[in-house]
């Protein structure tokens, strides 16, 4: 086993998991514990409950009112990200194949591969296009450029690296052997890592692990912070 395989395949996955879970739990707990005297309700408000939270998290209606172009880019990016994350469930487990069969939809192996190719291909394309659009915005729109600094570019470039290396796997000439990634995932859960050897997979995994470690430290926490900031101005 090479040093890279050991690092990316066996060590960093655990480091990333601990940093991710611990980091997010820490941030959420500090946010929950910090006192808020007084309300800052912004009117008109529909209040803040499960359904308004779900609506805000899934469709970004505030942003839609404020900036339609950014909304299109951001929504595309996040929806494709959700789709890609779901796709990765299939890459590391047999979850979808089994789920489809359990509801009586028996797709052939080739059928699954086709479905994955379409959905994954669409997500992979949308992600890279949206990420580049975000980057261009940050570079060339004055109102965004003048508020951008290190962390903004770093987060975006890291995302581009993860997406591009993932797209290389998806669209590259040699297809990924799902058996290898599933064995790797299972071995990680069993605490006896068997790292993949495909360098393209290792590269993608390395970027992803860095991103996962960085996420709790960064503004990328907005995915959860939304549920803390929004109620401050929405609760009536």
């Amino acid at each position: 086993m090479s040093g890279i395989e050991l690092l990316v395949g066996s060590v960093l996955p655990y480091v990333a998991a601990v940093a991710f879970v611990g980091g997010i739990a820490y941030r959420f707990s500090t946010w929950s514990r910090t006192p808020q005297p007084g309300k800052l309700t912004l009117y008109p408000t529909e209040g803040w409950d499960l359904s308004s939270a779900a609506k805000e998290a899934m469709f970004f209606p505030n942003l839609f009112k404020g900036d339609k172009v950014l909304w299109l880019i951001a929504w595309t990016f996040h929806a494709a990200l959700a789709l890609a994350l779901l796709g990765h469930l299939r890459v590391v487990t047999g979850f979808f194949d089994a789920a489809f069969r359990s509801v009586g939809l028996s797709l052939s192996h080739a059928g699954f591969a086709m479905l994955s190719k379409i959905a994954g291909g669409a997500a992979g394309t949308a992600l890279v296009v949206a990420a580049i659009a975000l980057l261009l915005r940050r570079l060339f729109l004055p109102r965004v450029r003048e508020i951008s600094s290190g962390p903004d570019f770093f987060a975006l470039l890291l995302l581009v690296a993860v997406i591009a290396s993932g797209d290389a796997l998806r669209f590259g000439s040699s297809p990924v052997d799902l058996a290898e990634t599933r064995i790797w995932a299972r071995s990680l859960v069993m605490l006896s890592p068997r790292a993949p050897t495909n360098p393209a997979i290792l590269l993608h995994a390395l970027f992803a692990e860095l991103l996962i470690c960085y996420l709790p430290l960064s503004k990328l926490m907005h995915f959860g912070g939304l549920f803390y900031t929004m109620p401050l101005v929405r609760r009536s």
């Binding site: 910090t34 006192p35 808020q36 800052l40 965004v144 508020i147 803390y228």
Partner: peptide
């Protein structure tokens, strides 16, 4: 140590520029 609103605003802005628009 709070208030929560300020702490979150310190840590949560993604710098998207919508406020400027």
């Amino acid at each position: 140590k709070g208030p929560k609103v300020l702490k979150l605003y310190m840590e949560m802005c993604v710098k998207c520029g919508t406020c400027a628009s």
